[in-house]
Amino acid sequence: MTLKRFIRFIVFYMLFALLILAVLFIVDSKNGENMNQNIEGRESSVVESVLNNKNMAIIKADQFESQDENDYLVYFFSEECSNCREFLPTLETYSIAPEALKIFAVDVSSSDSDGTVKDNLIKGTPTLIRIQNGNETWRSLGKLPMDHIPKRSTD
């Protein structure tokens, strides 16, 4: 192999390597932009959605049985729970209906909820519990259709 041919060979492979590095850099930049878009344009969190809804309120775990309402729902959720995020639009739609019960939300991942979760046999999230006059009268674990969520009595 002549020196001229060897230099062409080296230059060709150096250009090829630079091209591959450029492509990798562009792909990595695009992924970074997509990640930023997902962070900035992400779906709102469960907490944000609850805080923006006048018929829902975040409460501490030990407060869910001592609300001023006589008939209400307690929504046990976790920010990390995909079923909670998927169920949230249903719960938000329910909450604006005239016959909807007030909803008090408890984040099971907060440090103060361990005892309440254990004492009330919360096996998973999302869990909805109906409290009437201080007593649990209904419970559901998991996502459910809006028409299965209890409504305010009309009598």
Rank of each mutant, 00 (worst) to 15 (best):
2 T>I: 03
5 R>P: 01
6 F>E: 07
6 F>R: 10
15 L>T: 11
16 F>M: 14
22 A>K: 07
25 F>M: 08
27 V>M: 07
31 N>H: 11
31 N>L: 14
34 N>R: 15
39 I>S: 08
39 I>V: 15
39 I>H: 07
41 G>F: 13
41 G>K: 15
42 R>N: 13
45 S>L: 10
46 V>P: 03
52 N>M: 11
54 K>Y: 05
56 M>E: 10
57 A>C: 03
60 K>I: 00
61 A>K: 00
61 A>C: 01
61 A>P: 00
67 Q>T: 06
68 D>K: 13
68 D>Q: 11
70 N>V: 03
75 Y>K: 05
75 Y>D: 06
75 Y>N: 10
78 S>M: 10
78 S>N: 07
79 E>N: 09
79 E>Q: 15
80 E>F: 09
84 C>R: 09
85 R>F: 00
85 R>D: 02
86 E>G: 09
87 F>S: 10
89 P>S: 12
90 T>A: 11
97 A>Q: 15
98 P>C: 08
99 E>N: 15
100 A>N: 10
100 A>S: 15
103 I>E: 01
104 F>M: 06
105 A>P: 03
106 V>L: 05
107 D>N: 14
107 D>P: 04
107 D>T: 02
108 V>Q: 00
109 S>I: 00
110 S>E: 08
111 S>F: 07
114 D>C: 00
114 D>P: 00
119 D>P: 01
120 N>D: 01
121 L>G: 09
121 L>N: 12
122 I>D: 06
125 T>I: 07
127 T>Q: 03
129 I>K: 13
130 R>S: 09
134 G>P: 05
136 E>C: 02
137 T>E: 12
139 R>F: 11
140 S>I: 06
143 K>M: 13
144 L>E: 05
145 P>R: 04
145 P>A: 11
145 P>T: 04
147 D>N: 14
148 H>A: 14
149 I>N: 03
151 K>R: 15
152 R>C: 04
152 R>Y: 05
152 R>A: 15
155 D>Q: 12
